[in-house]
Amino acid sequence: MLEFYTEYWPDYWDGTLVTLRLVVISFTLACIIGVIIAGFRVSPVPPLRSFASGYVALFRNMPLLVVFFLAFFGVGDLGFVFGPFPTAAVALGMYTGAYMAEVIRSGINSVSSGQAEAGRAIGLGFIPLLREIVIPQAVRTVIAPIGNLFIANFKNTAVALTISVFELTYISRKLINETARTWLSLLGAAIIYTVILLFAGWVFRTLEDRYAIKR
């Protein structure tokens, strides 16, 4: 059993690196999209608000697989051909971004409006108000949901194998074909996922314990 893992460790390692790269890029993108869409969603301009809620509804109600296929094959048919990895990173970023926008919006709304009113009463402008009052309080309530999103995003990278990104789950699938040792191949990937995600969960719980508002 151990020989299996020592022999195929390089494959797993390559897969893990691809998965990690995909996670970092897509999650960064998701954060950027999330902030923009959440900003649109709380803005006083009606068309921006409807655009944002349309975006969120669209990505929340469509399976990730369909998003990937539309982005890869569908957009490819329009004459924009990108490689599997960039497509996967952008599609996953846009998908997680819709959830991220909801998390950020709920974080902003969780700050009591009295706080902002008090800020305005002492003459803070929009940006100082955000920086000094709203964001420090909002961040604390969104740590836990962002942690959950990160974990969900990490697990969703596996779907990228459908457009032939050679990430961790793809590797275990490939090893099944090559070695015919099904359970060993699958468990190798499962253990790597479990170790990384339990660690990530621990990190976010620690952050939450440290920064979350104690009531």
């Binding site: 974990i151 697990k155 969703n156 990278t157 596996a158 779907v159 194998l161 789950t169 275990s172 699938r173 099944i176 359970w183 699958l186 990937a189 499962a190 996922y193 479990t194 995600l197 339990l198 969960g201």
Partner: peptide, 11 residues
Amino acid sequence: RSIPLLLAIFM
């Protein structure tokens, strides 16, 4: 809870 659904499907 910490493995991707796809991996579970392959299992």
